[in-house]
Nucleic acid binder design. Structure first.
Lengths: 128, 128
DNA sequence: ATTTATACTCACCTAAAAGAGAGTGTTATG
DNA sequence: CATAACACTCTCTTTTAGGTGAGTATAAAT
């Protein structure tokens, strides 16, 4: 998912910035990223399989993929303990934590307005 | 995009609520929804083609689809003026406005942390 | 000797999302 | 008479996301 930034007002925006905002927003808005962010914000440091069990329905592939992207973006920190069987721990970086906080508003909004939305939908579907 | 809510703690959640939160978060986190929300929050009432021009890269199909979903969820209000050529105006409802505000935190975060992320990526890609 | 656990990767496949492009009805305008 | 504007809809094709199931290395436990 890539987001195209709006060039609403005539001022040209640095296309580098534009591109970064686009795919950044796309990334954080992604399904699994949000859930993992939430989870790590609540629980602190966790291991790979632990996260996999907590985020219901995620496949190993998506878990790895999402964690890698988050690591690359500096949202999570990955610690590998060179033991056998392997032990890898993930935790949010400062950056990740602040993003979690920013997103918190959206989650709260969603929870708070569930009923109004349900009502709006029912009303909409009942029209005609 | 559908979101699977985490049933992390053992307490069973009403599956109705669960489902609604899931697809609600999925919906609002969606690419075009966020962009249109932003746009209407800034500019107020706008016509179909105006929005289409402002949200660069959106297809007519996606524009219609996204606006319809937002209307159904009670986020935007749609006013049809029965004239020819047709005139349809869209504006955020109160609900839409509050969501815009909640999302504002995320946009602000993205803008504020662009550089750190760019740096994190560069560092990550340079490893090995 | 076999199984188990961990944290993955890889190749293949399907389903869903999104894009492209044409078509529609009506009126004003050149 | 042809074209343009508006707000769409419809169909077709491409792209992307994501699922599935297998495989890997190593050591400890059974």
């Amino acid at each position: 998912m890539t987001i195209q930034f709006l060039t609403s007002n005539a001022q040209p925006i640095d296309p580098r910035i534009e591109k970064l905002v686009n795919d950044l927003i796309g990334r954080i808005a992604a399904k699994w990223t949000m859930l993992i962010l939430e989870l790590l914000a609540q629980r602190g440091e966790m291991r790979f399989t632990q996260i996999g069990r907590a985020v219901e329905g995620i496949s190993q592939k998506m878990l790895t993929q999402t964690l890698r992207q988050m690591e690359r973006d500096g949202l999570v920190h990955r610690t590998v303990h060179p033991v056998v069987p392997p032990k890898v721990e993930y935790r949010l970086t400062d950056l990740g934590l602040t993003l979690g906080e920013a997103f918190c508003g959206v989650w709260t909004w969603a929870e708070a307005h569930l009923e109004r939305i349900e009502a709006a939908r029912a009303a909409f579907d009942a029209r005609d």
